[in-house]
């Protein structure tokens, strides 16, 4: 009872769904890259708060990472999405903007970034602790401001230590974008489901989408490994 697989369904133009799939893929990559960048920024701030912050700041960062790591991503995304859009639209109304609409892509990026930030905080905190303290002290002794120390010394020196963890986080980010399909974002997984249920060619579309995700994973693996060796240059090999 197998019909032969109809590959023309993957055509790039209108009757085929290939173009829609690639658009969804592009959107997934945008969401993942944006969320990853936001996550790194939150991670650096969170790690600084945990390592150098005052008592209150330290505890707040601790609570943030604890909640992010204990609650399912799907639930967090729903919560951030509803709370975030609600707060922003209320703030916009209070400031007198009416009919204010939040860009879906931006909302998705922020939601992913907030989740990524919790994990990135832990990775970066560990990496900063692996930097010999003398290097940071030397930078401070030259009279660099805390921001300059961070930018010129701490971040470059901790990057090789953070790379394995951060590479892992990028993989998680690409896969977490699929969860946005549940909220209704038209990224790859959502588009795939639409295409599959419209044509009833479930295996064709789900397997093509899987191939796209796999391609992204394998390609980024190559790039990340190259960057890790680059970041490690000048370091003595571990073994």
């Amino acid at each position: 009872m197998f019909q032969s697989i109809d590959f023309s369904l993957l055509a790039l133009t209108a009757p085929g769904w290939g173009g829609a799939l690639l658009n969804g893929f592009l959107r997934s990559i945008q969401l993942a890259a944006g969320g990853y960048a936001v996550g790194i920024i939150i991670g650096i701030l969170g790690a600084s708060a945990k390592l150098y912050g005052g008592l209150v700041l330290r505890d707040l960062a601790e609570i943030y990472t604890m909640v992010i790591r204990a609650v399912p991503e799907l639930v967090l995304m729903l919560l951030f999405y509803y709370v975030g859009t609600d707060l922003i639209s209320r703030a916009a109304q209070a400031m007198g903007f009416t009919g204010f609409d939040i860009d879906g892509l931006l909302a998705g990026i922020i939601v992913i970034g907030l989740v990524q930030g919790g994990y990135a905080t832990e990775v970066i905190r560990g990496a900063i602790k692996a930097v010999p303290h003398g290097q940071i002290e030397a930078a401070q002794a030259f009279g660099m401001s805390p921001v300059t120390v961070m930018r010129r010394v701490t971040i470059p020196a901790m990057t090789p230590h953070a790379m394995p963890g951060m590479a892992n986080l990028w993989m998680i980010a690409t896969k977490d974008t699929a969860l946005l399909a549940v909220i209704g974002f038209s990224e790859l997984t959502q588009v795939t489901r639409q295409a599959a249920s419209a044509t009833r060619a479930y295996f064709l579309f789900f397997l093509s989408a899987a191939a796209l995700y796999l391609l992204l994973t394998l390609l980024s693996n190559v790039v990340l490994r190259w960057y890790e060796t680059r970041a490690r240059r000048g370091m003595i090999a571990a073994r």
Binding site: M1, M171, K175, D176, T177, A178, L179, A181, V182, T189, T192, R193, A196, S197, R200, Y202, F203, F206, L207, A209, A210, Y213, L214, T217, L218
Partner: peptide, 25 residues
Amino acid sequence: TVIRGTPLLLQLWLFYFGLGALFAQ
């Protein structure tokens, strides 16, 4: 590699919609 490289949600939907429709045939 394949399982770890693709989202769980996609696998879930592949099994549920794909296998489900296939078995029914």
